[in-house]
Amino acid sequence: MRGLATIITFLFVGILTAFYIGFGLPDSSRIVAVDEELVGLNEKYTLKFSHVVAKNTPKGHAAAYFAELVKEKTDGWVEIQLFPNGVLYDAQEEFEALKKGDVHIIAPAFSEVTIHDRKWTALDLPYLFDNEIMVEQAFEGRIGELLLESFAKKGFMGIAFWDNGFKQLTNNVKPIIYPEDITGLSFRVMPSEALFKTYRILGARAVTYPFNDVYNVLRDGIVDGQENTLSNIYSKGFYQQQRYMTISNHNYLGYVVLVEPEFWSTLPERHQSSIQEAMDEVTMWLRKHAMELNNDMLQRISSTGITEIHEQSEEEKDQWRKVLKPLYDEYETIIGKELMDELKRLQIDKEL
């Protein structure tokens, strides 16, 4: 009997051991190894990307290309849903929507950012950049770093600067060649204090309307003119309501691509890397594409014969710079010494 009991006990212990090894027992002290890089990789993420311009613009093309690249680089685990033409929110509503998580990516124009961070007024100073080379040097250098660092304090994370192009003047009253030609006219501008003051110095009146209302206010004669890039002027049909255009390149219209930091931190690191990699590729591609598209739009506008086009000479630009120089002095304190010094250095370097 003792032998039988020993055998039964041995078998019972063996069964318990096998069960424990195969299924385990609850144990709060048990340590489980987790590969953090794999967390969330079996979950699909859908990110809403809201913007206010048309699909056939530099930003519209870039957003579409970005969505394609993200899908490719994440093997379909991250989908970028695009909402162009302000179908979800207008330019200012997007900031709050991003904060609330109602959208996940926005790409506001620099002027729209100035309402939330006055340091960004630096990019609305007239005739700041002479060409796309200076723009690239600014965004990829210390100027870009300072701007993103400043806006991060407001709770926004910038992951890229996107190009559109230089802004041109259009109006329905008369040709604008010299600064005095603009006196007494009214223009739609984006909601930037510096832009309002630019027109005030010139003796003109600046007003702001949502981007998707611009065509109507031009058509109805509520304002005489507006300022925008050639791609926007063509894609939105502004030129159809404007008899005169001045190729002035007086301001640069670009965008900062923003995400909300807390939401970004919830994405698996591999997805973050893939999204940023896609963003970097699109940003490089967009620099060349924006220039080509704007040149094409100029040719299209010119070929219609609707709008009389004047291109400013360097001598004419110098006259505008002289009149508008007080704006630089006024905003130096607001922009801050470090950022203003970098802008001045950029201006000096171009002359060397």
Score class of each variant (00 low, 15 high):
2 R>A: 13
3 G>W: 08
8 I>C: 05
11 L>S: 13
11 L>W: 08
12 F>T: 15
14 G>E: 04
16 L>I: 14
20 Y>P: 00
21 I>T: 06
32 V>T: 14
33 A>I: 14
34 V>C: 02
40 G>Q: 08
46 T>Y: 06
54 A>P: 00
54 A>N: 12
54 A>M: 05
56 N>G: 00
56 N>Q: 09
57 T>H: 04
58 P>E: 09
61 H>I: 05
62 A>I: 07
62 A>N: 03
64 A>Q: 12
65 Y>C: 00
65 Y>Q: 12
77 W>R: 15
78 V>Q: 02
80 I>Q: 09
84 P>C: 14
84 P>K: 15
86 G>K: 05
89 Y>I: 11
90 D>S: 07
93 E>L: 05
93 E>H: 04
98 L>Y: 07
104 H>V: 05
105 I>Q: 09
108 P>D: 06
109 A>T: 07
109 A>M: 07
111 S>R: 07
116 H>K: 13
119 K>C: 02
119 K>M: 08
119 K>N: 03
122 A>W: 04
124 D>N: 11
127 Y>F: 15
128 L>D: 08
130 D>Y: 09
132 E>N: 13
134 M>G: 08
136 E>H: 10
138 A>L: 02
145 E>W: 11
150 S>Q: 09
151 F>A: 12
160 A>V: 08
161 F>E: 04
162 W>L: 15
168 Q>W: 03
169 L>H: 11
169 L>F: 15
170 T>W: 04
174 K>W: 06
174 K>M: 12
178 Y>W: 07
180 E>R: 04
182 I>Y: 00
184 G>V: 07
187 F>T: 05
188 R>E: 12
189 V>E: 00
189 V>D: 01
190 M>A: 14
192 S>C: 02
197 K>Y: 02
200 R>S: 10
205 R>A: 06
205 R>V: 10
207 V>S: 05
208 T>I: 00
209 Y>E: 09
218 L>K: 11
220 D>A: 11
224 D>F: 06
230 L>V: 05
235 S>R: 10
237 G>C: 09
237 G>S: 09
237 G>K: 12
240 Q>C: 04
248 S>A: 14
249 N>W: 12
253 L>V: 05
253 L>C: 05
259 V>L: 02
259 V>N: 01
264 W>R: 03
264 W>S: 02
264 W>Y: 10
269 E>P: 00
274 S>V: 03
276 Q>P: 01
278 A>T: 13
284 M>Q: 14
286 L>H: 01
286 L>Q: 04
289 H>M: 11
289 H>A: 10
293 L>A: 02
296 D>P: 01
296 D>K: 14
300 R>W: 00
302 S>C: 00
303 S>A: 15
305 G>N: 06
308 E>S: 14
314 E>D: 13
321 R>H: 09
323 V>Y: 02
327 L>D: 01
328 Y>C: 06
330 E>F: 08
333 T>H: 08
347 Q>M: 12
348 I>Q: 11
